[in-house]
Design a binder for these strands. Structure first.
Length: 346
DNA sequence: AAACCGGGGCT
DNA sequence: AGCCCAGGTTT
């Protein structure tokens, strides 16, 4: 036990990457970096962190922003509820708490978008509280080192590893230990083909002794992929097009997209032009329509495949409630839409 | 307890 | 094609 925490901190001090949020213990910076890094590789979140710190140097700057601006800066990072909760929490801390960031695990846990992991990370890094983090890296390191085959995404597993992590954390340097075990999992005890020959813990690693490294951690499989068919209407005249905001509790909530006809099945041109949603936008006969993408576009999310058709609908008539095409790039949109806008010459 | 919520990188 | 990523919220 003692050996484990000592080796982790020692390995971390010799191998840690240089990251901007490792140069500070400002709760605002640590919070921002942690939210952005949820279920996201550091290499992917890093440029977003730099953009946000540049645009919003303090929590007050973030609190004063419009949600659309925050979502636009977040565009491409995914899991957009993180951005909405980030903004709501910034306003809460700035205006309700007068800018004073909660300074302990229990109070941090009350913030929107902050769960057990993030509250522990901020509490340990910023306030030296011995709250253990258990992220994907920690599950992997502990399950291998101690040879635990309880599924990490079962209720029993979540409790077991949290308890184990509590016993292991260094009470003198909880922040360094927490970051150390995560970095160790990310770079030494990697998911695939870790080089156990150069691992400082290889002599006491149970999984290595039992040749179980590749089999751990154990994870329960999730359900299979759902297929959806999206038909976007690119309604054009010389100046304008139409965008709508997604407001339902569904993917891409509060982001923008072209008028959408969704169906369980693939739709043909005939089915599109007689669809109620199409008629709502185009109540007359003065239009021409053609399919933009001849080859299939399948946008893949974790548990959904979005089969997409972009229908170009050209009009001579005036467009009500449209937006200038030049302003298209100002709206936060899913990557699926952003890719189309970039490729299509408006 | 299970489902839902993105996008990218690697094998 | 499948898995993983400095997880959290909702049902």
């Amino acid at each position: 036990m003692n050996n484990f925490k000592t080796e982790i901190i020692s390995w971390y001090s010799a191998n840690k990457r240089s990251l901007p949020w490792r140069e500070t213990s400002e709760p605002y910076c640590i919070w921002l970096s942690e939210i952005m890094s949820q279920q996201t590789r550091i290499e992917q979140s890093l440029p977003y962190y730099l953009k946000f710190i540049d645009a919003y140097p303090t929590i007050f700057h973030l609190a004063e922003a419009k949600e659309d601006e925050v979502l636009k800066l977040w565009q491409g990072l995914g899991y957009y509820s993180r951005a909405r909760n980030l903004h709501a929490t910034a306003k809460y801390i700035a205006y309700e708490l007068n800018g004073k960031f909660p300074d302990n695990y229990n109070d941090l846990l009350k913030l929107k978008g902050v769960g057990d992991y993030t509250a522990s990370a901020i509490a340990s890094i910023c306030f030296n509280e011995p709250a253990p983090v258990v992220d994907g890296n920690v599950y992997r390191v502990l399950s291998r080192y101690f040879g635990v085959d309880i599924p990490i995404n079962s209720t029993k597993g979540i409790k077991y590893f949290k308890t184990l992590a509590k016993e292991l954390i260094d009470h003198e340097q909880p922040g360094e230990y927490n970051q150390g075990i995560m970095e160790f999992g990310a770079r030494q005890c990697k998911p695939q083909s870790p080089d156990c020959n150069i691992c400082p813990l290889n002599e006491s690693c149970v999984a290595l002794q039992k040749k179980m490294v590749a089999l751990l951690p154990v994870k329960i499989k999730k359900g299979k992929i759902k297929h959806r068919h999206f038909n976007y209407l690119i309604i054009n005249n010389d100046e304008k097009t139409i965008l709508e905001q997604r407001t339902a509790n569904d993917i891409w909530k509060n982001l923008y997209e072209f008028p959408l006809i969704e169906d369980k099945h693939e739709l043909t041109e005939e089915q599109i032009i007689k669809h109620d949603i199409f008629k709502k936008y185009i109540p007359h006969n003065k239009f021409s329509i053609h399919l933009y993408n001849n080859d299939k576009i399948v946008h893949k999310l974790s548990h959904q495949y979005i089969h997409t058709k972009f229908w170009i609908v050209n009009l001579q008539t005036k467009i009500e409630n449209g937006i200038e095409k030049k302003q298209l790039n100002e709206y936060p949109v899913p990557i699926l839409i952003a890719n189309f806008v970039e490729e299509f010459s408006f």
